[in-house]
Amino acid sequence: MGSKLATKCSQNAKEKKNNIIKAELYLRAILPTLSDLVKVDTKAKSIIENRKISILLNLRNVTKTLLKVDNGKIISITNPNECGNIHLYFISPEHALGVFEQGKLPILLRGFTKISFLRNEFDALSKRLEYFLKPTENLSLDERKISVALQFKSALRMGEVLGETDEVCQTILKNTTPGILKISIDEIGFEAYFGNINGKWKYIECPDKGQAVSSTLSFKNLETAEAMLTNKLDTFSALGLGNIQIWGLVPIIDNVGLVLSRINYFIS
């Protein structure tokens, strides 16, 4: 009886911990991808044209994300010092997950007069993001390019969050030499950087001067990148076939792959 109870408690603790990580992935990695979305998608940009508003999404005792909407642009700040015009509050990770995954309502603490922005523009923007992050087969070529770029950026942001929250990713980090991996898809002009930077898994849009790239991973074409993002790619075969090219410190590439593969453990 005691042993069963201990097992149950341990399972509950693990589930609780995973829920915190999952909620952080939504707040600190997926929502901030809105800032990328409005840069590349005119439809998304047009939704917030001429709007100036800020939304604070606050998960009690865990994390806060401020989205500053300013005339077609969005800036995302994690754990900001300022409050938003709108303050959305989540009492627990489970509550936050209910909002993000099942359409439940957050608690509105501030911004009652701006609720129409949440119901209209913000909702439309979120749906537009979902359209690209969970693509169907009906996307046009241009939309596919946007989708792949956004999926990569979102995944790399998630990698950064997992580096802070997931013990497995932290162990992988300990076994990784410092260095920056450049990920690129030449066909669509996409590039992003991720690596063990100053002892943390970090996503950067562009390295600073003096930050040398230690490994490169480039996809021959959009199809190969899409196959990888949808877990349909045998990467070793792709390397042999020349659909993926790598150079430099291969262990960094391997370990970044391990970190990114942890995303599926939390969010499918």
Binding site: D234, T235, F236, S237, L239, G240, L241, G242, Q245, I246, W247, V250
Partner: peptide, 25 residues
Amino acid sequence: FERASKVIPCGVYGHFSPAPCVPPD
């Protein structure tokens, strides 16, 4: 290798795989 990649995971797996042979071509 094209034939192998259709019927064998990795095409050639393990330490004989093309992955650490940079560049594989």
